[in-house]
Design a protein around this nucleic acid. Sequence first.
DNA 1: CGGATGAATTTAAAGGTTTTAAAAAGCGTG
DNA 2: CACGCTTTTTAAAACCTTTAAATTCATCCG
Lengths: 342, 342
Amino acid sequence: MRKVTLSTIAEELGVSTATVSLALRDSPLVADATKERIKEAASRSGYIYNRRAASLRTSRSGIIGVVVPDIMNPFFAEILVGIEEELGSSRHTFILCNHRDKIAAQQNFIETLLQFGADGVILSPAIGTTADDIRAIESSGLPVVFVARWVKGARVPVFRGDDKKGAYMVTRHLIEMGHRKIAFIGGKRETSTGNDRREGFLAALEQAGIEAVPELRIGSERTRKAGYDAARTMFSKDREAATAIVCFNDLLAIGVMSGLRSLGIEPGRDVAVAGYDDIAEAEISAPTLTSVWNGQQEAGRLAARAMVRILTGSVSEEDAHDDRLIQPELRIRESSCPPKPV
Amino acid sequence: MRKVTLSTIAEELGVSTATVSLALRDSPLVADATKERIKEAASRSGYIYNRRAASLRTSRSGIIGVVVPDIMNPFFAEILVGIEEELGSSRHTFILCNHRDKIAAQQNFIETLLQFGADGVILSPAIGTTADDIRAIESSGLPVVFVARWVKGARVPVFRGDDKKGAYMVTRHLIEMGHRKIAFIGGKRETSTGNDRREGFLAALEQAGIEAVPELRIGSERTRKAGYDAARTMFSKDREAATAIVCFNDLLAIGVMSGLRSLGIEPGRDVAVAGYDDIAEAEISAPTLTSVWNGQQEAGRLAARAMVRILTGSVSEEDAHDDRLIQPELRIRESSCPPKPV
DNA sequence: CGGATGAATTTAAAGGTTTTAAAAAGCGTG
DNA sequence: CACGCTTTTTAAAACCTTTAAATTCATCCG
């Protein structure tokens, strides 16, 4: 029982492999009757299309690389879901890389993609990625689109939530509730997302004429644990260090709430807390968490769609650079509260 | 600037492509001096190894399929991390599928894997997968290993936590605290995991001479939302329906705790709650959640390692069927409490 | 009826690597 | 210098598909 290939079928039916190839792809060059016979024979014999062989010839592999910082982070997991859904409907498959913000890992993966003859890469670049890095990738023949994060100076379409606006919205919401001492926890200056959210935060303060106090901004990892620690650091000396906290993301915010509670401070009553991303947990944490819906899945979907468009050539150069900012939505929940009356 | 291939280099150096191919793979057949020259030329000219071409010849693609129910579930995300780490160190790449317990999606993906000439597949099978399905996959040339879930009757190595034992341990822990009315929430009878955990639960009850009450077992999805709903269903009529709850997983347990609290029942004081999997959230939820560490990452790593071993032939038939049960560990936290005195 | 047209099919090359058998080169020996 | 032996190198086939160009064959038109 040797492997069934085009020529197995061709032989069996007494036609050429070219005919078989064309027939299976429904080419109008082949007579209907022949197509029938061929297709029947193919499915009967359990023929399996050999993409490696095909792509060797066509130099189109149907593989798209997806590079994200960390799939354990629901934010990126959700983006991935969006990408997967979209690619599923377009005969493309993706291979995945978690770079954990290690440039080397990212670089390594790009190399692998090239070896596989990947058609393109959807990238949430690692901290420290330069515009030159991106250019290098592109000039080696891999089209790039960004998702969630992007790199300054790289002329590449980017799909992401409007972080600055979202951060502005949630900060503004807290200000409107009467807060003046608002802290910002988490996010690294090095990531575009971190920068944008911080900017939005600062913009809201400024607009309300509130002076920004550097002590009220703590950078950190983007994990629950980091949130827990940051909250304890900030509030252990001064229980009224701030009356509200904007967190870089929900994971952090949930950690922050635990941290507060461990100090006997009740989030949503003593101190208002807000997160970002609106992950599933936000709705079910205790208290439920005010957050900003950021359209991760949508971003993934759009990025994948854009990539497919680029690959199928059904996109103008213009189109490709039409960065799509997904409009964030504020989700107000129990963790929002006015400042405690003194 | 045409693409650099073996023959580009061969031409430049006036040797044959065979020599170049062998040299780049460090074959002892090539003289050291020649190797030097060739390697130098390769890196200078930016040669990229073409895996499609190679794998066409060798029928080894270096691709491994990974099939899990849902990456949004941290349980599976963690398995994935284990797999990725392990594969990273062994020149293999994986392509991913979320089947969402749809057999069709799983089947589809297997087809894709075959087209790509994948070397094997690491599978957390969809509900309803039969031993025949697995046999079909294997007989089409894809070695299979299971991770987390498995299929009865399929002679395939499986790497997973000892669910039965873990469920036994956590139930036993609650019994020792004095509980007699213990509920079990979540999990589907159709998954191996669901079954095993339920069995462990029942075994602990039986061993303690506690009668199992069917009303205290609710099957459900494995999400936070489902936990929330289940808790409300169970406790809304009778606030003392049970004094302790064992949940199928942490996600559910966190939902259950929220559900309880929404009824004014305080988890960890009024009712003991325990989860399973020990995901990161368990440590940081409020109250922190008693759970069972199940070694997801370890399971992923072992599964990947086993697959690589199978592929490199460095494994006896014996070895391959040495299913590895990872020993669970009980993590007792605040959500454990004795039954409320009446 | 010769030649043009068009449809259906085939031929042959190309794509880049690996591998096997065989050739070549080098070298010491008798 | 012929011989055998080892070390290097090579030619060529194989892997399977796609595609441009060529071929066949029947039909149609003037």
